[in-house]
């Protein structure tokens, strides 16, 4: 695990960097989840009763060239949302209590496809359809963001970051981990 925070680690604090394509959940008050976002979106979910939280970091895949440029492939975002929720449920969270804070989805380069806006729209649509209220959002715009999330308390710090510090978000044609493998017994 690398540290993208640029901050010295606090005493006893375990800092976990959540990279694109990952989802982490924890109930440990000594864990901090952090990430740097450009056009990607990070969803921070928190169940205030069980004090379990988690963060994912996703970027929707580009559609095949034959389809509309605005029609991004939502499979991967959906997968990472479900993965995050399942990790939290596995620790004891209850979906009906979970609230969301969402960050990222910037359109860093106006000459490129508005994938940041597409990511932000997907996150809002997913959370609405799953009945998960958005307690706070800081999405879109032109700035990169650095996020620090304490999953056991639900506290989030979001700072704008230099564009150069954001990872070069490259949409995947299909997720690397997306096997969709079928095994018949």
């Amino acid at each position: 695990m690398s540290d993208l925070s640029g901050l010295p680690p606090g005493a006893g604090l375990q800092r976990v960097t959540v990279l694109q394509g990952e989802a982490h959940a924890s109930a440990d008050p000594n864990v901090e989840l952090s990430t740097v976002l450009g056009s990607c979106v990070a969803t921070c979910l928190f169940d205030p009763l069980s004090r379990i939280g988690g963060m994912n970091h996703f970027l929707l895949a580009e559609p095949p060239s034959t389809r509309s440029r605005d029609n991004f492939d939502e499979h991967y975002g959906l997968f990472l949302m479900e993965l995050l929720i399942n990790k939290m449920l596995g620790l004891g969270a209850v979906k009906s209590r979970v609230k969301a804070r969402v960050y990222g989805g910037a359109n860093l380069n106006p000459a490129m496809k508005p994938i940041g806006t597409a990511n932000a729209a997907f996150a809002r649509k997913f959370l609405e359809s799953e009945g998960i209220p958005i307690a706070f959002e800081d999405m879109e715009g032109r700035a990169a963001r650095r996020i620090h999330f304490m999953p056991a308390s639900g506290m989030v710090r979001c700072r704008t970051a230099p564009i150069e510090s954001a990872p070069m978000d490259k949409p995947l044609v299909r997720p690397q981990s997306a096997s969709g493998d079928v095994e018949l017994f």
Partner: peptide, 22 residues
Amino acid sequence: GATGWIVKPFDAEKLATAVRRV
């Protein structure tokens, strides 16, 4: 007693093929 196991995110073609097989 499951007949098969498919890992998300699924591929629509593979899923359809599995359904037709079973």
